[in-house]
Structures are given as structure tokens and as C-alpha cells.
Amino acid sequence: MEAVKQDDWQTVCTRDDLVLNSGVCALVGGEQVAIFYLPDTDRQVFALGNRDPIGKANVMSRGIVGDLQGQVVVASPLYKQHFNLETGACLEEEGVFLPVYDIQLDGDAVNVKVAG
């Protein structure tokens, strides 16, 4: 595996800016990234595209998170489709995906990898 290049990552906010078991939105390299904070999972943080491909508005960070049949998901606040937080896949509509961003917690810093 390729070593993570330090300058690919951008610190977007601190843990304090996140909302427990819910989402916020960050602007990363001109793109809207929805960041979800589930501290009782292994990864704790998840990052997906903020645009709802079905409702066609930038709202995913405002959805409710939870789990369905073992998958950690967020529900679109517009029409309630669920998206897997790890893979971005839509549970209701095959072939529909949200972009997935690399994200990590470094102490209290929340880092997101900037595309290419």
C-alpha cells in the first residue's frame, strides 16, 4: 500500500465541531463533504459527498444516521433513501452511490484527504 502523503490531507475542523451521532458539512477543495461522527464505531468518522443524487440538493450531512441490517447508514433528509457510510452505496436504488472521502481523526483534528 502506498504511504499516505502528508500534504494530501487537510485539517477541516476539530472534534468539537462535530455533532455526536450526526453530521456536519465541510468545504474541501471546493467540494461539499458530509462528515459523520459515530464515536462508538471503530472508525469514529465517515465522510461522504453532501449532494443527494436522488433529491438533487446538498443536504446529506443533515440526515439521520443509524444502522440497517448491520450496515452503518445515513438517511437522506429529503426522500429518506439510505446510504452506506462506508461505501456510499444506496440501499434502495442499485447503482446509486455517494462519493466516499478518506477521513481520519488525529488527536482532536479532523483530517480529510483532498482529491488528486
Binding site: 477541516v12 475542523c13 465541531d17 462535530l18 456536519v24 458539512c25 465541510a26 468545504l27 461539499q32 446538498n58
Partner: peptide, 16 residues
């Protein structure tokens, strides 16, 4: 705090 459009920017949602 929750009402900020972006946690790291004062820009507005360009999709609107």
C-alpha cells in the same frame, strides 16, 4: 453552532 453551512468556511451553498 449547528446552523453553520460549513464547519470550515463562511461561504454559502452554491447549489441554492
Amino acid at each position: 453552532k449547528r446552523f453553520r453551512q460549513f464547519v470550515n468556511s463562511d461561504e454559502e451553498d452554491s447549489g441554492v
